[in-house]
Design a protein around this nucleic acid. Structure first.
Lengths: 129, 129
DNA sequence: GCGTAATCTTAAAATCTTTTAAGATCTGCT
DNA sequence: AGCAGATCTTAAAAGATTTTAAGATTACGC
């Protein structure tokens, strides 16, 4: 290993947008979002996650590995089990903001659908201030 | 095409984790992250984005369409150009939190590389040379 | 050491996304 | 109407990710 690389492993210097994209991409799978939520307030073993997700050992391991590579998770071995936990709780803030954005988009979409029928000229379902 | 731009088709009820995953997945491409940042404080036309990104018309349109489908962007036509803008500024908060997480992960990784003995987490990055 | 449970790795097949290239549309102009 | 510029759509090829299935490791108790 070389001395002063700024990356984890010496590789081609990736542009910042690609690093961000890779970060988001690792969140782009339902099982992985689910794993993060299962790890919200305590660590869990692979077996526990596997049971909750209802996917097999291989799949679970691969999702966990992807998130560990990305720096989202870390693991600790205790006997024959491995416990995973999230590394940075700010990831939950991220999930929360995402949910807010998604929810309000849903709400707006619903307004559009409901407005088609409403005929009171000034307001629809959601009274504005 | 039918009525207006994007409606929520009544399809199979997708589980929430999948909706979240799809949301993150649309952020999982460098060009799309880049587009969002280009749209941070003003809208832009497709042509402007295309020039900044150095990708062709087709690619640009497709990325824009993906983000519009996801509800991230909206568009307005002015003559022969189409202007895009972000729909919900909270998306920038998301990008910001992501960057914080990524940065501190980088900082930690560097700590591990640079020092094994000193462990003041706040000052380690440029403390020794 | 051997057997067993837990986790990880690998490789091929299946699936999904991105790129590339060509053409279609839509708008304003003359 | 016909033309030109801007944007959008589509389809096929290339590339990446996910799933599936099988085998490899690792740690523990006997």
């Amino acid at each position: 290993m070389s001395l002063s690389d700024q990356d984890q492993q010496s590789g081609p210097p990736r542009p910042i947008h690609q690093i961000k994209a890779e970060f988001f991409r690792v969140l782009g799978h339902p099982a992985r979002v689910r794993i993060l939520e299962l790890l919200r307030d305590h660590e869990s073993t692979v077996g526990e996650l596997q049971a909750a997700l209802e996917i097999d050992s291989s799949g679970t391991s691969q999702h966990l590995a992807a998130m560990r590579r990305q720096g989202l998770l870390e693991s600790r071995r205790a006997g024959t089990n491995v416990h995973y936990r999230v590394r940075d709780p700010r990831i939950f803030k991220l999930l929360e903001v995402a949910l807010q954005i998604i929810s309000s988009h849903f709400a707006e979409a619903q307004d559009v659908l409901l407005d088609k029928e409403a005929d009171t000229p000034a307001m629809s379902r959601k009274a504005r201030g």
